[in-house]
Design a protein around this nucleic acid. Sequence first.
RNA 1: UGGGAUAUGGUGUAAUGGUAACACAACAGGUUUUGGUUCUGUUUUUCCUGGUUCGAAUCCGGGUAUCCCAACCA
Length: 625
Amino acid sequence: MNDNDTSKVTAPSLTGRAGGESSSSTDTRGLSFIEQKVVNDLAEGKNGGRFQTRFPPEPNGYLHIGHAKAIALDFGLAKKYGGKCNLRFDDTNPQKEDTEYIDSIEQDIRWLGFEWANVYYASDYFQQLWDFAVWLIKQGRAYVDEQSAEVIAQQKGTTTSPGTNSPFRDRPVEENLRLFEFMNSGQCEPGTLVLRAKIDMAHPNMLFRDPLIYRVLNIPHIKTGNRWNAYPMYDFTHGQSDYLEGVTHSWCTLEFVEHRPLYDLFVTWMKEWFESLAKAPQTPEGASMVQKLIDGGYVSPSGDEGEAAYQGPRQTEFNKLNLNYTLMSKRNLLALVKNGFVSGWDDPRMPTICAFRRRGYSPESIINFINKIGYTTYDALNDFALLESAVRDDLNQRATRVSAVVNPVKLIITNYPEGQVEELEAINNPERPEEGSHTIEFSRELWIEREDFQPVAEKKFMRLAPGKEVRLKNAYIIKCNEEGEHPYDVDAEGNVTCIYATYDPETRSGQPGADRKIKGKTLHWLSCGHCLPAEVRMYERLWKVENPRDELARLQGEGLSNIEAMQQMMNPDSLRMLKNCYIEKFVQTMPALTYLQFQRIGYFNIDTDSTPDHLVFNKTVGLRS
RNA sequence: UGGGAUAUGGUGUAAUGGUAACACAACAGGUUUUGGUUCUGUUUUUCCUGGUUCGAAUCCGGGUAUCCCAACCA
């Protein structure tokens, strides 16, 4: 409740306009409907000009790229329009939550480039929520039910038929208060008692059929320890937390659309509670809480809501991120980790933020992607190719170019003197000449890619073949020996083991006259005596099917278990570990997570497990081809 | 036999009653010591149907399709 005052703003672009009627002339075309609303609200001076958001993850798993979409909105718009965004952990279910996740969530948000104004926990409000619930009981708007979960579910009715009232619905207030206390005593068996809001068991919105607002868990909580045994439910926590913090814009995903009326109802009830407290603060705690609310402008001293600047939080829903060939739900990601289908939350095939980081995606590329897909109310399935395009676009500017040979075959330059070594220059990044160059060595024996040689060249093959010329990048033009001149060796299985060529000494890169035109392409290469062994991990999509979410549901509908369905959908080639690769010495001491381009192959990143003695690289994404 | 939400090229998004556009993808070509980058060009769009209007992707009626809701999860 200390979030007032510091975030009073007006939209930068909207100030200084003559005349008061500015909102109608505000041009918001091209902005998302969410951002348009922010601009208009600020132009109208809503909430006294305050603009405040929150990012409310549950600490029950690692953040994934879908969260990045929410983060870019909550933090991004707050930053853009001079508001503030708080991080609030939605920790109302101690069964699933762990401090391990809190640290990773904070780290991932920072990595994406954002900083919160304050860190809060929904559990910070457990006392207020409890007092509020007690007040509701006294008002006759909540009651303790002692039926089993099954019976309560049955009485709820269905989407097409109304529910029926619980026999405990009209329990006397005193009994409700006594049982509610008992729920929190630690003596109450979980599942035997729940607190429900008394609304309407025939309501077309299922959420209004006397929703459960408190349940007994008797589980210690990561923040509050053993203080509480009865815990509030999401719907009884979220809107109130927003209100207590002074959130003005509460954004969430589309599946919460139906929760909005309930969100509004509980906020309204809470305002009533505060107004009643303001008129007759009964306890010192209540009095001090009310004073804070008055100071914050949330309620006026008289309790007259019309005078309060803060109009309360408004929930607005946007479409969550769906990516093709990607499974996003935390529950299923946890299953992948628990069953060992991936090496961990940061396995580079995972859609988690930490996995994208390890895979070699830059935070900028992720944010750029998010900004391209937009925020709407349409349940879209986005193309992974757009994300890959964003990362290529960013890495093209950023990545240091090096040579690596991932599928090596030996090439001998027969007319190059044995023992001779030349130092040549390699540009670090042609997109950024200011980054200079580094030195590479050339010698008689080289590694080139096996795919860059064909004993009998296909029609459109423009690389090395008997009698054909190619350029070795930053070095010489070479010519493979003609048929009949012993162009290559083969082993017993017919695999090429060594290729023979001659070089043209007049064509060294950078020398005058070296740039004679040839038909062949330019190949990358490494000097056998001057490179390092490396392990390169090549990744492809984890899932074979375009829409794993729907396919998983379909297969489970056919009777398969979650595990069986996943196994059936998984791409067996999603990880190929290439242990027999070579790379230039230049990279040996570069730190983990350095952005690299293996020329002609793709963008790669130094793995967090890599050491100078055992270099490990992850393929981020291939070059476009 | 309920309620809520949505529908614009292959994918996503814009156009806020006035010429349907942008990005990705795809295709063709120029440049290139990365089959990369870059540049030029091409293909493909308003779910159906009726109405209002000088004029409809936009407003209205009726269909159709898809998504969400019957957790002591969030």
